[in-house]
Amino acid sequence: MNKPLNKMAVQATINGESKAFLCSPGQVLAEVLRDELELIGTKIGCNTGDCGACSVLVDDRLVCSCLVLAAEVEGKSVLTVEGVANGGELHPVQQKLLEHGGLQCGICTPGVVIAAKALLEHNPYPTEEQARYWLAGNLCRCTGYDKIIRAVLDAAKTMRGGAA
């Protein structure tokens, strides 16, 4: 009944560090990040791609890590919320979320940080509407999104060097 688990060895760059880990062939990245690599900042709200709490970047592409097989990241680079701050220095998105009170319970926050960072790298001048659509896959039940969107637009401004 208890089949031997055929584990795969995967090598990837996780938050800038080269890492090797074992995973089963059907295991999703979110699970491996949390359980094998102890990167619990990546949250699981649904496991079906519907909440965005598990958002990470794979080779700079914003994805739901619950909808990526861990085996798929072989040779790729993964960024989780733990890798967003530069040492002690917060990313502007993180800083602005704090300043605007853009989190209440904070369970959606890691996903929002990752998704907003991806947005601002992709589009330094997002309009409110663009920010709202880009972040539509990041469910937040606490804030009504108001302060999240304000924080993201403010972070965009900071990253542009304070220009309007």
């Binding site: 949390r34 359980d35 990167l39 619990i40 900042g41 990546t42 949250k43 699981i44 989780t80 919320v81 733990e82 967003v84 701050a85 917060l90 993180q94 979320l97 704090l98 300043e99 009170g101 989190l103 904070g106 369970i107 926050t109 890691p110 940080v113």
Partner: peptide
């Protein structure tokens, strides 16, 4: 006034531990 919440840093950096985060 509106100071930054004391638990905020852990929450924006992914360090905060929620229900499923303890083994």
């Amino acid at each position: 006034s509106r100071p930054i919440r004391p638990d905020g840093l852990d929450k924006v950096t992914g360090r905060a531990r929620y229900g499923a985060d303890l083994n």
